[in-house]
Design a binder for these strands. Structure first.
Lengths: 156, 156
DNA sequence: AAATATTTGACATTTATTACCATTTGCAAT
DNA sequence: ATTGCAAATGGTAATAAATGTCAAATATTT
C-alpha cells in the first residue's frame, strides 16, 4: 500500500463509519478526508499541517473545520493527541498502545513500537488512590536523520 | 520544609547559581523568583500560571519576562517542558527521571515516582538507528480528587 | 424529493507565544 | 562606592494556535 493511495486503511475507514453511525455523526467528506490524511502519515502532524495537506484535495476546506473535526475524532476515540512539550496539539490516528521518540535536534516525533514496552505494570502502591487507564512513553533522543548528520555522538 | 518557605530548596538555588555563573547568565531577581516559584510547586504550571503567582511578589514583572526566563531555564537544564497533549507549554523544575499521570477528568498532571519505572531499557533493535537519551512515561487515568468524586469506576 | 438535524465556512475573538527596542540592571573593573 | 558595558527586563506590537458565532450548505431521515 502506498502513502498516496486514494482510500485509507479499510480498517480505519470501517472504524470511522462504525463510530459515526454509532454516535449519529454525519459521514462528511471533510471528516473522511481529514482522518484519511491523518491515518496515512506517521509524523504526528499539527492541525495546521493537516490543513495544508488536506486543502489540496478538498478545495475550500476551512481551517476551523480541520480543528473542529480533529477535536471530534479525538472525542470519539478515532484519534489521539500526542503528548509533546511544544505549545501546540499534535495528532495521531494510531490509538493503539505505542510510544514516541522526540528528536532533541529537529523536533520530529517518531513512533516507537516495541513489545517489551507495552506490558508495564502500573505502580501497585498507587492503586486505590488513582486509576490508571493507559500509558505512553516519551523518549527523547535523536532521530536517524539527525544522528546521521552529526556523526555518532552528540556534538553540541 | 513548608510549601510557602521564603527561599527555595537550597539544592535548586545552588544549582541555579552554579549554572548561571557557569554560562555567564546574570543572577536577576526575576530569574530567581520564577525558578523559586516553579520549584516550589508540583502542578506543572503554564507560563501564565507562573506569571500569576510571581507577580504578587515581584510587582511589575512582565509576562514577556516570564516566558523568556522559562525558556532560559529550560535551555540551561534547570527546568523542563512537560510532555502533554494540550496546546500550551507546561513546566517542571524537577529534571530528574520521573513520570506523570494526566487526569482525563480534570486535566491535572501529577508526578508519578516509582523506582520500577526508572529502569526501563531502551529497545535494543533500534540502537544504531536512533540515540536514546532519556524517557518519561505519561499515564492517563484519574487523579485522587476526581476518583473520589465519582465513586469507584468511570461514570461517563 | 422534502423536511430536519448536523456540519461547514467565513469571520471575529480569545489565548499562547514571540519579536522588538528603549530603559534598566547586574557585574566586573576601577 | 562609582563607572561602563554587556545582558536582561518591561511595554507594546505582532504572530501563532485555537475557539466561538451564525448563516449557508450538506447529510440523513422520511
Amino acid at each position: 500500500m502506498t502513502r498516496h493511495e486514494k482510500h485509507f486503511s479499510s480498517n480505519k475507514e470501517k472504524e470511522f463509519e462504525f463510530t459515526c453511525r454509532k454516535h449519529g455523526l454525519s459521514l462528511t467528506i471533510q471528516r473522511r478526508a481529514i482522518l484519511e490524511n491523518l491515518a496515512g502519515r506517521t509524523d504526528h502532524p499539527t492541525a495546521d499541517q493537516i490543513y495544508d495537506a488536506v486543502k489540496e484535495h478538498l478545495k475550500g476546506v476551512s481551517k476551523t473545520t480541520v480543528y473542529r473535526v480533529l477535536e471530534t475524532l479525538v472525542n470519539f476515540g478515532l484519534a489521539r493527541k500526542v503528548n509533546n512539550p511544544e505549545a501546540k496539539a499534535r495528532f495521531d490516528a494510531d490509538t493503539s498502545r505505542h510510544h514516541h521518540l522526540t528528536c532533541i535536534t529537529c523536533g520530529a516525533v517518531l513512533d516507537i513500537h516495541a513489545q517489551q514496552l507495552n506490558r508495564l505494570s502500573f505502580p501497585e502502591e498507587l492503586h486505590g488512590d488513582v486509576e490508571f487507564i493507559d500509558y505512553s512513553i516519551n523518549f527523547n533522543g535523536r532521530c536517524p536523520a539527525c544522528l546521521k548528520k552529526s556523526g555518532a555522538k552528540n556534538t553540541e
